[in-house]
Computed example of a mutant assay.
Amino acid sequence: MWTLVLNCGSSSVKVALLEPDTGAVAVTGLAERLGTAGAALRLDVSGERRVVDLGGGSYPAAFAALLAGLDELGLRAQVQAIGHRVVHGGEAFSVPATITPEVLDAIRACSALAPLHNPANVAGIEAAQQAFPALPQVAVFDTAFHQTMPEVAYRYAVPEAWYRQHGVRRYGFHGTSHAWVAQEAARMLGRPLTELNLVTAHLGNGCSVCAVQGGRSVDTSMGLTPLEGLVMGTRSGDVDPGLHDFIARQAGLSLDQVTAALNRESGLLGLSGLASDVRELEAAAGRGHAGARLALDVFVYRLAQAVAGMAVALGQVDALVFTGGIGENSVTVRAATLARLGVLGAGVDDDANARAVRGTPGVISAPGRLTTLVVNTDEERMIARETARALEAGA
């Protein structure tokens, strides 16, 4: 079943038309800078790129251009379903859901938990419904995979009323990626997923680790929002909650300004004073840039701590899995992380680690050490699969 996968952000829409069983991809695309004079849609087909100027348009203009592009390519008739990435489903959704007015209202109700993401997801869904009114559409939630976490893992030690009345708990994110790479790791190892205890590390501009026991999430590093946990590209990860009040008073900032700085000016960027991209930081560190070296060292230290912490949830770790832009490509980050994880019996095979870049997955651990793999994530294909399953199940 050819499925159109849509990932709608505040000013962009990522697009992929693919067949979930085979992984065949007919077209990929990106509409970006929506609502600005530079708004444009890029479609990539068989190595060729087509760019359409959207004239400052937003979601409706992007979807109209997408429809026209699919018609021109003779692909519109192949689209049989649409799968939407939705960031936050709260406690309402533990599995993907066919989009109905009630489901859309529930997604809107989660907007307070993801104010930067869910409103954009809703706007994209509404535009897609107008563009493809006859097609079934499914919401696939980043948070759903983590709804199997036990209460001891998802509850904060805060007043009970905060949880009961306002939903203050740990939800976790990157669920589609963690689920995909866990399945792929089991396939690569030739073992049933139900028998494995895995720690999966999704490392990109956003980063999180997850403890996957028998294919189910039992703990993860992100929490109420995607700000909790690891050091990320521009996000701080874990900080003392008292920091907000302290820096607001000392620097004369509002709560919104502090939160914005922790999301957009912190992490690797904040520590290095240079960049949020690990590739740039590795190059700068090689030239002796102290801030870049510090940022990478802190990133690795916090990552190793989090991986070791996931072992508590699992009891034992059968394998560690790296994925995401950093996880799939940074030989240095992987090696440095494994060097800090001797407590788990980790050790790197330098030659295998060096080969596992640019889309080449594989085992990178030294013989006799904790099995460690690099696995390419494929969130679009996972969303397409989940969309097909939801429709088959009548969810």
Rank of each mutant, 00 (worst) to 15 (best):
M1I: 07
W2N: 04
G9V: 08
V13M: 14
V15F: 12
A16Q: 03
L17P: 03
L17K: 01
G35A: 08
T36V: 09
A37G: 14
L41M: 11
R42S: 14
V45A: 13
R50P: 06
V52F: 15
D53S: 04
G55L: 15
G56V: 10
G57K: 01
G57D: 13
S58D: 11
A64V: 08
A65F: 00
L70S: 05
D71G: 13
Q78H: 11
Q78E: 11
A81Y: 05
I82R: 10
V87E: 03
G89F: 02
G90F: 00
E91G: 09
F93D: 00
S94F: 12
P96I: 08
T98S: 14
P101F: 13
A112K: 09
L113Y: 04
P115M: 09
A120K: 06
G124N: 11
E126G: 05
E126D: 14
E126I: 14
Q130T: 15
A131C: 07
P133A: 07
A134L: 13
A134W: 07
L135E: 05
Q137Y: 07
A139N: 03
A139Q: 05
F145G: 03
F145C: 09
H146M: 14
Y156P: 07
P159D: 12
W162T: 04
R164C: 10
G167Q: 02
V168Y: 00
R170Q: 15
H174C: 12
G175S: 06
T176V: 05
T176D: 02
E184V: 11
G190D: 03
G190P: 07
P192N: 12
L196G: 06
L196M: 12
N197P: 12
V199Y: 02
L203F: 13
G206D: 02
S208D: 01
C210E: 06
V218C: 01
V218K: 01
S221M: 08
S221T: 09
L224D: 01
L230W: 08
V231H: 02
T234Q: 08
S236A: 15
D238W: 02
H244F: 13
H244A: 09
H244T: 12
F246H: 08
A248P: 04
A251T: 02
L255G: 15
T259Q: 13
E265F: 12
E265K: 06
S266Q: 09
R279N: 07
A284H: 09
R287D: 15
V300L: 05
Y301K: 03
R302F: 12
R302V: 10
Q305S: 12
A308Q: 06
V312Q: 14
V312T: 11
Q316N: 11
A319H: 03
A319R: 02
V321A: 02
G325Y: 05
I326R: 01
L341C: 10
V343G: 08
D350E: 13
R358K: 13
G362Y: 07
S365N: 09
S365H: 02
L370D: 03
M382Y: 07
A384H: 04
E386F: 10
T387L: 11
E392Y: 14
A393N: 07
G394S: 14
